[in-house]
Write a protein that binds this DNA or RNA. Structure first.
Lengths: 234, 234
DNA sequence: CACTTGAATAAGTCATACCTTTGGAGTCAT
DNA sequence: ATGACTCCAAAGGTATGACTTATTCAAGTG
């Protein structure tokens, strides 16, 4: 994703460097310097900088150069910024922010999904819950992850709110990060799997309140399990 | 904001046109054509297109051109995309999506703010509640709006979650839109003002549950008041 | 009919020249 | 010394022409 062309390469190099704090706030990047450093033309540098500017990672002014902006200015909802931060030194902060967002959004999404659930959604969700149960028991973390992501994405989509649906990628990134960085036990907690089943059942029963409760338990549990790791990195 | 330079002008013209559906999904824009239409150079066109591409509004491929992407692909959390959609034909859909997001986030933000409220936050919030009460009575909608935006932004910031804080702009845009388009009564509802006072008091008392309840009442109320207008436009 | 080949097309890249803004040095008068 | 004014140089912004590369589509070939 987003690795097309030279400007893509620049972006894939500069973005993470800035997002991780490797290039600190206030640093001034001159076009000429970037051209030389990456051996590319003005055109390429300018396009990459434009994109970074749209993300509010940098701001360019005449006679000054492109300045790395303070964290507060960054567009923290941009998918690329989220990914870059998750990959770098800011991982802890990004995970806790996303955790908070999940606590806010996912329970409401589950309630909405239950309130207007179609048979298809019910079927798919139930099937995913079964897969989660099976792969959790067998300890196949990769498959478990795949289905976990699909489960949460489906709930977000079934909410009928396009903005909720777009958070699926971010949630997926969080779940992936959790698995990749060994931040979770080798056998997913039994209670978590049970809660996923509860969500699926509540959605099928169009019981909004129950769906919301179960989902809230899932996401608060996820954040709590992460808390020690976050504290350790801070 | 974002009106600097020629590429900024292009963006300010193309962005809204796409976001409003005026330029429909699937439309192919050729660089040369855009150069001619706006009387600018390739450089400018390419930079504008790059930014639109980062927002996933368009995708450019060799030998084909830059194609307008379907709505589902758009980065609906991008501040500019939100603003453009609010200004155009998609306003109703965007308002209802944002309304849903507010219902999810703001109550949780209020609870967090209450749980870790500082004296400063309490003071500021109380002051804003007073201003809201006064300007509501006098019917000064512009001032009321200003303070309303500040109130919600402060709660989001006081939550301590950077992602919540970044939603302040979007919430501000919703509130502004509501006032500008005469979608609200000339004297803000008395119960709404009372609820804002309740939020402020709950935060000062560090009563998370009460703050969450009051805020939830505010945002659900806001969405319900909007419902008839939304239905009418759909 | 499938498969290869080739030409046309539009984006991507580079190099260069020139314009425009603006920070800051230098100057001068108070 | 302090303030205001002038002017220059630095860096981004824009325009343009030449060239590269990927990709589609169609013609040709087995």
């Amino acid at each position: 994703m987003e690795i097309q062309g030279l400007h893509g390469r620049l972006l894939a190099d500069l973005g993470p460097a800035i997002a991780s704090g490797e290039i600190p706030e206030g640093t001034v990047l001159r076009s000429e310097e970037l051209e030389a450093r990456y051996g590319v033309s003005r055109t390429v540098v300018r396009e990459a900088v434009r994109v970074l500017e749209a993300m509010r990672l940098v701001a360019s002014r005449r006679r000054v150069g492109t300045t790395v902006q303070p964290r507060e200015a960054w567009d923290v909802f941009d998918p690329l910024v989220i990914r870059w931060r998750l990959a770098g030194a800011d991982r802890a902060a990004q995970l806790s922010s996303l955790g908070g967002l999940r606590i806010a959004v996912e329970p409401v999404a589950a309630a909405l999904a239950a309130a207007q659930a179609s048979e298809d959604h019910c079927r798919e969700l139930s099937a995913l819950a079964v897969e989660l149960t099976v792969t959790a028991r067998s300890g196949d973390l990769q498959e478990f992850l795949r289905h976990d992501i699909a489960f949460h994405a489906l709930v977000l989509r079934a909410s009928g709110n396009e903005m909720f649906a777009h958070l699926a990628d971010a949630v997926g990134a969080v779940l992936t990060g959790r698995t990749e960085h060994e931040l979770m036990p080798h056998h997913p907690a039994r209670y978590a799997v049970a809660l996923h089943r509860e969500v699926a059942e509540a959605v099928c029963a169009q019981d909004a309140a129950a769906a919301e409760r179960a989902m809230r338990a899932i996401v608060t549990g996820a954040l709590e399990e992460l808390a020690p790791t976050l504290a350790e990195q801070a």
